[in-house]
Each structure stands twice: as structure tokens, then as C-alpha cells.
Amino acid sequence: MNPTHPPFAYVLFFTSAAAFRAERVARDAGIAGARLVPTPRSLSSDCGAALRLDEAAAEAVATLLLNAAVPFDRIERVS
């Protein structure tokens, strides 16, 4: 069900409203394994959700989100 495996990239958002839009944009574009997960503590002290990706998909997802005008904070790679 979840082909994603490390190394991961995490898209971090200011607001969960954007996180849910991003998940839909990524899934609509067929980004396998894009999944909202609790943001790892190492990336943020926040209680929000982050979009976890295959690291290899980070570039493509960043472009997708920019094109869809979904605001995000940054993308972090975690190995």
C-alpha cells in the first residue's frame, strides 16, 4: 500500500489546510506513496502533518505545488 521508503523527503507547511491540498495535488499527479504523516520532531516542534515522499520525488512535487499555488514552508530530506 505504501511503496515509499527511506530516504524520505518531507514537505512542511504553515497550515494543515495547505497540507491537505498538497496531498491531493500529489496524488492526482500519481506521485506514488505521497502520504501525510505527523511531522517528525527533528523537523518541527509543531503538532501538524507533513507530506512524506520518496526523496526522488521531491523535485517533482515542489514543482507541482508551485504550479498549483499551494503554499509550503520548505522541503527537508531525512535519510
Binding site: 497550515t15 494543515s16 489546510a17 497540507a19 501525510l36 504523516v37 505527523p38 511531522t39 503538532c47 501538524g48 502533518a49
Partner: peptide
């Protein structure tokens, strides 16, 4: 919604 990362919240 927007308060946790578990499946029901998502």
C-alpha cells in the same frame, strides 16, 4: 482535523 497525524484526523 489538522490536529494530529493519525488516520481519522487526516
Amino acid at each position: 482535523p489538522g490536529r494530529a497525524g493519525h488516520r481519522l484526523s487526516l
